[in-house]
């Protein structure tokens, strides 16, 4: 599904990722944990192709295609979905118009016919209900005036509608209370079908209580410094990230 090889990336000439390797197979859930400033969010932006996030060297292969050189929207059409930590508000563009446009863009790439307004309304309503958002949110401007939790749920709703192959959740748990967290986690779990893969980026172990990962990786200073099973997350929970200092010294 996704192969990242020796990825080096920088933002405004500052090197953030320094040789990252990761392989995600269909159906797998990978958690990426790490201290602040480790490059967790950068990874999501680089994979999505955001302007200003320069890949200096390395390879990203997604679903058999070389991702480097693909535009942001082409990557999305190919099945990559990034759920944002802080989704932007776009007043004046309604959620409904926005989602219909994007669903049809993705369908076109998959060789499917565009949905009619009526068809789309039906699936949109269902998705809305699934993440506990009132239907009127479809009419409102994208994320306009939404609370932090509503924005996160809106992200998950988009994920449900777009049916991506790989989902990257960028700290989707931050700022959420336990109930909102469960809604987000349930939305994600409902999309686990054995084929769809997930990269769950998080600072805390909390989210992983609800979305159980197959693998846990620790990202520090632009590299994955340790990988393991779910037990690794528990270890972090217990001892924090302080041990990384020693680890880095040892490896230096």
């Amino acid at each position: 599904m996704l192969t990242i090889k020796d990825l080096h990336a920088s933002v405004e000439d500052k090197v953030i990722l320094k040789g990252l390797n990761l392989t995600v197979k269909p159906g797998e859930v990978h958690a990426i944990m790490g201290p602040n400033g480790a490059g967790k969010s950068t990874l999501g932006y680089v994979l999505s192709g955001r302007d200003g996030y320069e890949v200096d060297s390395g390879k990203i292969e997604f679903d058999g295609r070389d991702m480097l050189g693909m535009e942001v929207d082409e990557r999305a059409q190919a099945g990559l979905f990034l759920a944002f930590q802080y989704p932007v508000e776009i007043p004046g563009v309604s959620n409904m118009e926005f989602m219909k446009e994007s669903v049809n863009a993705v369908r076109k790439e998959r060789g499917e016919d565009p949905m009619t307004a009526a068809e789309f309304l039906k699936v949109a309503k269902a998705a809305c209900q699934q993440v506990n958002l009132p239907l009127e949110f479809l009419k409102r401007g994208v994320n306009e005036g939404f609370s932090g939790g509503e924005k996160k749920r809106n992200e998950i709703m988009q994920m449900i509608l777009l049916e991506p192959k790989l989902c990257i959740l960028d700290e989707s748990d931050s700022g959420l209370d336990i109930d909102a967290l469960k809604v987000v986690a349930n939305g994600v779990n409902s999309q686990r079908d054995g084929k769809r893969s997930f990269i769950v980026v998080t600072h805390y172990q909390r989210l992983l209580d609800f979305i159980e990962p197959d693998f846990v990786h620790i990202l520090a200073d632009g590299k994955i410094v340790k990988s393991g099973g779910p037990e690794l997350a528990k270890e972090v929970e217990a001892s924090g990230y302080a041990w990384l200092g020693e680890h880095q010294e040892a490896s230096a």
């Binding site: 535009e71 776009i90 007043p91 004046g92 989602m99 863009a105």
Partner: peptide, 29 residues
């Protein structure tokens, strides 16, 4: 707003179409 443009693109919408949406969006608002 580059952030909005990026956001629309991460949902698969082409740049030119995203610009049209944002442009009209600011009247629609």
């Amino acid at each position: 707003d580059e952030k909005s443009l990026y956001y629309l693109q991460t949902r698969g919408i082409e740049r030119s179409q995203a610009l049209v949406m944002l442009n009209f969006g600011f009247i629609q608002e």
